[in-house]
Simulated assay, not measured.
Amino acid sequence: MQKSEVESLLAEKLGLTKIAARDLLNVILDQMTLEMSRGNRISLPGFGVFEVRAFAPRTGRNPQTGEPIEIPAGHNVQFKPGKGLKDLVAQSLAQ
């Protein structure tokens, strides 16, 4: 599903114009991005948790040459699905 499809679905479900739905989605995504850029956790019960995690520096390999390279420490966003989402996906895909 693409962002434009989510916007159309929001417009239909909430009785909004497509422009209002796009603005609503952008506000939500902007706020989530801002919170994660501050290192904050976002918990959406039944759906999941978005969390910023730090990772340590490590040695990797250049896939073309096999040469070792240093990968610096950094941060990454991780998503952990909630029980409701996990159960629904497992049930839907089992059919």
Rank of each mutant, 00 (worst) to 15 (best):
M1N: 11
K3A: 06
S4P: 02
V6A: 13
S8Q: 15
L9I: 10
L9N: 12
L10K: 02
E12F: 11
L14S: 07
L14N: 05
L16T: 04
T17I: 04
T17A: 11
T17M: 05
T17E: 10
T17Q: 02
I19T: 11
A21I: 01
A21W: 01
A21F: 04
R22P: 00
D23G: 09
L24Q: 00
N26L: 06
V27T: 12
D30K: 12
Q31W: 05
M32C: 15
M32P: 01
T33R: 09
R38H: 08
R38C: 06
R38Y: 03
G39K: 08
N40S: 13
R41P: 00
S43C: 02
S43K: 09
L44Q: 09
P45Q: 13
G46I: 07
F47C: 08
F47N: 09
G48Y: 02
G48T: 07
G48W: 02
V49A: 10
V49C: 10
E51A: 12
V52G: 10
V52E: 00
A54N: 10
A54E: 15
P57G: 08
R58W: 02
G60V: 01
R61A: 13
R61S: 08
P63N: 09
E67T: 12
I69W: 03
E70N: 13
P72N: 08
G74W: 00
G74Q: 04
N76M: 10
V77T: 08
F79D: 08
K80D: 00
K80R: 15
K83S: 08
G84M: 06
L85W: 05
L85K: 06
K86C: 03
K86G: 02
D87R: 04
L88Y: 03
A90R: 12
Q91N: 06
Q91E: 15
S92H: 10
S92Q: 09
A94V: 02
A94F: 01
A94W: 01
